[in-house]
Design a protein around this nucleic acid. Sequence first.
RNA 1: GCGCCCGUAGCUCAGUUGGAUAGAGCGACUGACUACGAAUCAGUAGGCCGCAGGUUCGAGCCCUGCCGGGCGCACCA
Length: 663
Amino acid sequence: MSACLVSPVIFVIITITMLKTKKELRQKIAARLSQEFPLSISEIELTPTPDQKLGDLALSIAFPLARKLKTSPRAIAERAVELLAGIEGIERVEVAGAGYINLYLDRKKFFLEKLASPTKTGLAPEEKKIIVEHTNINPNKAAHVGHLRNACLGDTLVRCLKYRGENVEVQNYIDDTGVQVVDVVFGLMELEKKSLADLNRIEGKFDYYCWDLYTRVSRYLAENEEARNRKAIILKKIEHGESPEADYAYNVSRRILRAHLATMKRLNISYDVLPCESSIMRLKFWEKAFSRLKESGAIYFQTEGENAGCWVMKLEEERGEREKIIVRSDGTVTYVGKDIAYQMWKFGLLGQDFYYEPFIEEDGRPVWISTFTPTPYDVHFGSGSKVYNVIDVRQSYLQKVVVQALKSLGYLEQAERSIHFSYEMVALSPESVAEINVDLSEEDREKSFLEVSGRKGVGIKADDLLDRLEEKALEEVNRRNPDLSLEIRGKIARQIAAAAVRYFMLKYARNSLIVFDFKEALNFEGETGPYLQYTAVRLRSIFRKFQERSGISCVEFIRHAQPEKIDLSRLTEEEARDFWELVVLASSLDEEVARAINTLEFAGLAKFTFNLCQKFNSYYHHYPILAEKDAELQTLRLMTIFFVHEVLCQALDLMGIQVPEKM
RNA sequence: GCGCCCGUAGCUCAGUUGGAUAGAGCGACUGACUACGAAUCAGUAGGCCGCAGGUUCGAGCCCUGCCGGGCGCACCA
């Protein structure tokens, strides 16, 4: 809530005990109805009505009951209405249509309760410690838009979990010894003949430099078979920490990692710890996991067929003979194997931890990186009770293998609590590809969208996108607020650019493939991040002007207003409707967050925030606030938009969107 | 071939676990700034919810079969 203008706590005194949650209401309803009907609380579902005229909440239990009891739904609904009379906080109950039971809330009570604590009412933590792993970009090239989707989803999950009160640890796994890094090392050593000292003399954006080098190496390796053997030797040396190859890998991966962290910082995304694959290898996490997997029979040695000489695993619920190779015939472990060891460590099942040292400092707090040699720092990570892995849908099969390994080892609970937060990939529209100067094959040219490929250099770099957004935002800010200092204008432009990206990545359901298009991503109007920011800025502008004109802050003013004097019947029918719609919508943030976490669907949270802004903008357009002469009306409207503002700020914060001071 | 996902307005997408009259944004067309900020608002047009069956009081949502598209099924990560 630090992003907000005012404190969320207002001291409105409410004498009557209020209905805290929908759950309580359901319990009360169940208690009443079960006197006469065969019902349990799980069957009591309160859904919003399609129209405010039909009340606020609807029960449709009369339909299934009518079937069971062989009477008409209408008759049941009528009896139910009698039974439900006089529940606290419910003004009245009515039958509608063929047998819907509609509840009308006591508006004044409801509003005052919400105003007293605008955010954070019903949610409570459910886990001891939650680990969220996201971003995980190979440290061999610049971050691209696909990575942004991962990081935005992951970071929003983190923020929502923290809002629920969870203890969350954010991990960003660094595959610093994998083949992708090796490719770049190969390019530097073999193609460019650069010494380690030369590396440090490379000017400009190092991640961009490697982006190009990586595609060159990929092409070279595809064309030169003998070179692949030389690359394999480099890979082995890096895994065993031999000089100078390992030094190259270290140098490249750390430098690019810094670039990635800087990119994510532009989006207000940060991490607690950076576990490295090099640490997993050198501390022999895998060996430990391997012996356990062998003992339990989770994996077995294949002696015949095409997988002869490999350690393999089978997926339980899979038919057929398909085996997943965990250890190759040359004795080296595959990526999945390392991932199994890593997942075990996350749950604290290895009985061993990394060593850590500070890598960079963000907001006065160190971001720790794992090491394989002892350090003087007494910090520990891992040992979560629940783990979310944010990885795109293409890795579903491998994630299943990891979970299967936990199951086979007897860690059923941990297997149950290993959540693959999967989402569809980001592809590129032909128009966007045309802007980045890559030569495409005939085949690719035919497609309606193109998959991002680091190897081919097909991708929109995250920093390029952010730069373009900032540039465009700055133009707008310069035009609208020319009197602000250059520094402030720059800051606002950066905030707008970040909001545009974050909202863009969130507004699509996770199963929806995003075909990235510059025209859409660069839009600041309509359903976009800047629209949300603009709404919040206007709200604050009203509060600021209120204070300038009245000499008292909005919070103070509301604190001294006497709630019992609020008279909703003074509103016209139209205003009463608009007021109530706004209040009911704003009151559902908790539900939205709970749903987002449960379904891992953050598009709903994004749409909720957007709808709230739309409703507010419309309300604001219709009803004067500062210009309102009637003091009572003004107070009520001020209270209303104050409540909306609190909720809006909280929602924006959950999406990592900041509110600029001006726009 | 097997597995997972997706087909909703011209375009891009929502649709709260099966509820009442299918919603937004963009684009198109009309209107509204001597300002509580027009990055806004008010309005118009635009739909066999891929097709065909089924389940039931009720289906965009569940089941089956087609049609069309995407992804995965590496001793790559």
